[in-house]
Structure formats: structure tokens, C-alpha cells
Design a binder for these strands. Sequence first.
DNA 1: CTGTTAGCGCTTTCAA
DNA 2: TTGAAAGCGCTAACAG
Lengths: 340, 340
Amino acid sequence: MAPTDGQRATTLSDVARRAGVSIATASKALNGRGDVAPATRKRVLAAADELTFTPNAAARSLLAGRTGTVGLLTSDLEGRFMIPILSGAEDAFGAGQVNVFLCDARGDAIREQHHLRALLSRRVDGIIVVGRQTDPRPSLGQEIPVPVVYAYSPSDDARDLSLTPDNYSGGRLAIEHLLSCGRTRIAHITGDPTYAAAQDRLAGARAALGAAGLDFIAEPMFAAWTEHWGRDATAMLLERHPDVDAVFCGSDQIARGVIDTARDLGRDVPGDLAVIGYDNWELLAANARPPLTSIDANLQQLGRQAAQRIFDAIDGADIGSGTHQLPVKLVIRGSTIAHR
Amino acid sequence: MAPTDGQRATTLSDVARRAGVSIATASKALNGRGDVAPATRKRVLAAADELTFTPNAAARSLLAGRTGTVGLLTSDLEGRFMIPILSGAEDAFGAGQVNVFLCDARGDAIREQHHLRALLSRRVDGIIVVGRQTDPRPSLGQEIPVPVVYAYSPSDDARDLSLTPDNYSGGRLAIEHLLSCGRTRIAHITGDPTYAAAQDRLAGARAALGAAGLDFIAEPMFAAWTEHWGRDATAMLLERHPDVDAVFCGSDQIARGVIDTARDLGRDVPGDLAVIGYDNWELLAANARPPLTSIDANLQQLGRQAAQRIFDAIDGADIGSGTHQLPVKLVIRGSTIAHR
DNA sequence: CTGTTAGCGCTTTCAA
DNA sequence: TTGAAAGCGCTAACAG
């Protein structure tokens, strides 16, 4: 790159001058607008090329009123859930002419407000707010002059549009799968009970069990979303309920711990004990012994949908409102069904 | 948000009119520039507040020549290494008035070129290029009119500035730690041999061994960066070299596999076998049994430094050139040193 | 202290 | 078919 490029970037008038036309004509030629003589257009294009002209988006957006820019307001960039969503959104936008402003508020409301202002000042055409839990988060308010969609964490205001994974169905799906594998003595080891995700998955699971005239073999075990807890809980579980034949885990991390301890204690997975995780975190699920059956929340898809909604709203469509639960899917691996 | 806000955003002249002053005065009052009577300033501020005025950054940057915007060109957003770097950069910028444009090229050169054009068109003040391996990547070229810094993947052109972790020192550090733990029969299980990371770490490790008058107990074992390979390799290793007393692993994933298999085969970690990983991926390292000693590449710090360089270059400093190896650090956990 | 004037780079009427 | 002129929203001289 140029260490200290004294000269400003080349402008349209540079191109025009070089091509020997007015800047109006140059503009038309470059944008294929209006009637420009083929020869003239050619000359302008050549000039632009020689000068490596790059139109100034700021100037353009001043006129247009739109910036072709969308803000992504995350609260925890490091988190596991941000990335696929962000990636899906970037994907959906990237196809077109939209660029993404990334802002990480680090879970801090002040910083979030600060970033929001910055985005508004840059006249983003829309904003996607990505949270780190499925618990509702405070709305940014109804005063935002551009479309906003909340992804993962729904807004606590029903007038906002929120997209969040359907944890209830996830829980149901998990149990239905275990039942279809012939398991009936099922336990549930999950994470922090204050998380909506934990409660919703449990509720869905209970519903599925109830529909089959069953209940969990033991009270659901809550603590942390960690391998460590998965191990400890499993040791307790196997001691108190040695006849358990399946465990539905609230996360893949927990499931990893469950599998490891079951193995240590001489249980065959999935022979003696079927284990199903949640999140389908490839890194953890695919490398477990045996590989982990899990529920996938389709987060990338969720991100794409969020982007699409923004698109539509920019094009004048009503963005809609309310919290939409997006479908999740079951990914079957060796921890619930043995290889033939 | 407003579903269809017919009215354009409020502008400075709206504020001026409401405050009964000229737009010049309003501008000065708002920016604390020039001499404005306290009463007038108050009136302007009030008007701006009532109208929730947000200055148009595009208009501003047209004058200023700078946009307060930096481009982040990644090649693999999902990757493990992007996030901390990106996060560190966002952090460094976020403190000031800079916003980050995120572009994910998905490892595709065409898409990268496309995104580069978009960034240039938006007149970013600088660009950080984040790669997914420590192998050199093609330079964007010397024609870019703004400062560029390459993070993680260095550029293949020495005239560019690149920041990359010091894998050689990492390898050295790992071995020195094992030696200081009294281990002398050390093996190396690592990933894909075509990765510079694998070779650099190995070279550093060899140097440290050589300095102690030692060599690896067996030829380094190369294959994949996976738990699976860690397990398979360990089974082979323990069979052929039962007297091995330490394993330096090329990644934390590999190390997890090593620990698990060592355990399965009745070896105590760290009693019989010390294991050290690489990357210090918290999720894997902290939850291993025992928790994994590892080498941390300080990626967030790397991201911050990249941002700082961009800052400095924007302020007129020379951005520098060449590939700079940034220090890594040892993080000691239970897999190399037993609890007392 | 305040307001007028002149643009930043670009698009878009509207004449010529 | 081309170009002159009028801004988009804002800041920075320079007068008043």
C-alpha cells in the first residue's frame, strides 16, 4: 500500500477530464444510464480504468438516501452462537451489494447504545441484533428509524420482530428420537435452570414423554453447560438409577461429559445407554466417542432469514413483528444408534 | 422501528431552523467548535435533542476525507482463529470512533476481490486481512490506497506488513516446559505436515531438544488436527514406545485424543505421561481430564496490535513492513504438572 | 458572536 | 448526445 499517498483518491471529475467529457456524461457512461454514444462510453470506461477510479460510496449515498450498509449488533462475539448467525447474515448480504458493520457491545448496555448511535449516524439501512441466549433482551425501542430484527435473543417487546430457535420442538424431537430407538427410561441432564433454553427444551421433552405416557426416570438435573457437570451428573445418575437407558443432554458439552463417564463406568454407548446432545457443535459432536447425535438449531439459516427480512423491509415490505420460533433439526450419529 | 417512515431523517438544517439560527451556527454549537454564545448553544442542543438529530456520517466524511471506518477481510469466519483476532481488533477500534466493516471471502479469491472493491468504494481508512493459517497468502498488492495489515496469515510480499504468531517459539516453549518437568522421552503428535504451523512448531521443538542434547523418542507423527488422530497416534505410540514420558501435541484437539487414549490404556496423566497441547482453546483445554497445559498464541492481542498499526498509519506513521512474529505464551494446567 | 459562501464527489433534471 | 446547474448534509473559512 502507499505509505503516504499525498494525492487524494481519483474522482469522477478526474476521469471526465481525462476522457474529455463533462462529469455528467462520465457518470452516465459509468453507470450505463442515459444515452451516451458508444465511442464516448468506451473512452470514459478506459479513462476510469487507467485511473483505477473507485466511486465514492459516501457521495453516492448522500444522494441516494440509502447506504447499502447493515449494522450487526452483537453482544458476545466470542460466543458459540454469534458466529453462524453472523456468517449466515453476511452470506445473504454478501451476495448483493450490501456490506455489514460489525459492532460487539460485549454485553454492555452503554456500549450497545454507543454503537447504536454510531450505526445510525452511518445511516445503515437496517440492523440485526444478535444475542447470546434465547432469553428475551431489552428492546432497542420503537424509535429506530430503520428496520431492526432480533436474532437468537428475542426482544422483550412484541412489536419488534424476533427470530429465535424453537427450543421446545428441539426438546420434543430429542425425546421422540430416543423413544423411537426403543428407550423408555430416560434422564435429563442440562445446564443453568435460569436459561429459557433449558426450560423450553425441558418443556418440549416433557410433552413428548407425556404423549407416550412416560416421564423422566429422575428429576431433571440442572447446573452448568459444561463437560464437567456432565461427568458429575452422570456418576450420580448411574448410581441412583442404574437402569437408565438414555440421557437427553441440554448441550453437546454436557453430552461429552456424559459419554465419557458412562464409558468409564463400563456402560456401552449406545448399547446400554443412548446419549443425545444439543446444539450440534460439530467440533464436539463429531469427535465424541461415539459421535454424538444432537439437535441442530440451524443458526446459519436463522442469520440468513434475518438478513432477508431486513432486505424485504428495505424494499418497503413490512418487517412484521412478534417472536418467530425457527425449526430445528435432528442430526443422528452413533451415540443413539449403533453401527450395523 | 418505523415500518415505513416517509419522512427523511432530520438534518442539521432542521435543527437550525428550530433553534432559529443558521446551519453554520448549529454545526458549531453541536461540535463545540468556534465561539457560540452559551444561550445559543443551549438552544441548538435542545433542538437537536427534541428532533433526535443524528449527524450524517457520509456527509461528514465527504468533507473530512476520512470515514472512521476500517475493513476486516477474513477468509473463514467460522474458523477458530478469526474470532479472537476480529474481537481484539473490534475492541481496539471500538474504544474510539472507528467502526468495522466485516467481509468474509470464504477463502475465495474472486469474492475477496469483490469485497476489496466494496471496501475501497466505501473509502475505509484501512484494511486488516485475516487468514486462517499461518502459511503465507497472496498479497492484495501494493496498489491499495489505504494502509493494510495482514493478521495470522502473513502476506507473501515482504513489502506488506504482517503480524503472525511465533510458532517456532511456541514449539520451543512447549519442549522447555516438558524438560523443566523432568521429561526426557518426548514424542510429537501433530497435524497436517503441509501447514507451516506444523513445521514451525516442530522446528522450535527440535531446537529446544537439541539444546538439551536430546531428540524426540520417535519420528514426529503427522496427520490431521483432530481428536481422532490424537487417539490413533497415541495407541501406536504407546505400543512402540512404552517408555515415552511426554507428548507435545500440535493442537488441543489432538491433545484431547491423546489424553483420552492414554487414560484408556491405563497411563496416568500427568504421572506417567505429560501432555501439552497447542492453541489454548479454552473450551477444549479447560474441560479436559486433567485440564490441558497449552500454548496460547495471544490472538486477541494480535488483533489489537493490527488495529493499532492501522491507527498509527492513518495518523501518518509509516505502517512498516515484513512479517512480525508475535510472542506466544505457555498456559500451565494439570496435564503436565500434578496437583499437590 | 453569527451568518454567508463555497465546496466534499456524485447523480439528476433540463437545456442546448 | 452532451453539459451546465442544482443540490444530498455537512464543515470551514471569511465577513459582518
